[in-house]
């Protein structure tokens, strides 16, 4: 199967226009979390601030019950707690965009978001973009147009592009460039990312009645 065919067939799927479908591909890793307070840890100061609290995270359609210190960011909860390492840590200060995920369908920097603040919201990461084994049109277009090299910023680029398409404002090439500027790629894949995003956007537009 060629990547072209993939894109065409996937673009036919209506749910893509809704942003991204959530499937049951998230895997629960609630047990043995390294960032939970566990029995063998040294006894923390009795009543200091910041004791771990129960946190129910909904990630890619699956609920996860964690016990986290309130200071744990969404990014660290995903990577260290749930072993969903698709979301990347590049700067940890909102300066690179590698950690971009969708919260209630809006793209945000998960490194500056507290996990505890996302309780009751729906988090979607790069692991939740594909529908089972069927890749999201953006994923297919990124492969087809070689829109990455080392791949480290790629999950953030993809989630950001998914958010951009949902927002629906960026139309021209310059607008796509501007609206993708929160995601830094040091390998220099920008021209290919532009082509990939443009192609998916145009494919999605064709689908509109």
């Amino acid at each position: 199967m060629s990547p072209d065919q993939d894109i065409d067939s996937a673009a036919d799927r209506r749910e893509f226009m809704e942003g991204v479908a959530v499937g049951g591909i998230g895997v629960a890793f609630a047990a043995a979390l390294p960032i939970t307070a566990t029995a063998d840890e040294p006894v923390p100061p009795a009543r200091g601030p910041g004791q771990p609290v129960p946190v129910k995270l909904n990630v890619n359609g699956t609920d996860h019950d964690l016990k986290l210190e309130p200071r744990v960011t969404l990014l660290d909860a995903l990577r260290e707690g749930l072993h969903l390492t698709g979301s990347k840590k590049g700067c940890d200060h909102g300066q690179c965009g590698a950690c971009t995920v969708l919260v209630d369908g809006r793209r945000v920097n998960s490194c500056l978001t507290l996990a505890v603040a996302t309780v009751g919201r729906k988090v979607q990461t790069v692991e939740g973009l594909a529908d089972g084994d069927v890749l999201h049109p953006l994923q297919l277009a990124f492969i087809k147009h070689d829109a990455f090299q080392c791949g480290y910023c790629t999950p953030g680029q993809l989630c950001s592009a998914a958010g951009l398409l949902k927002e629906g404002r960026a139309k021209s090439d310059d607008e796509i460039r501007e609206e993708m500027s929160g995601n830094i790629c040091r390998c220099g894949a920008y021209p290919n990312i532009l082509v990939a995003v443009r192609e998916v956007r145009q494919g999605a537009l064709k689908e509109k009645p």
């Binding site: 909102g94 965009g97 971009t100 809006r106 500056l112 927002e167 500027s181 929160g182």
Partner: peptide, 9 residues
């Protein structure tokens, strides 16, 4: 200012 992600936050 900032980036689309940060502006969303």
């Amino acid at each position: 200012g900032a980036s689309p992600q940060l502006r969303n936050m």
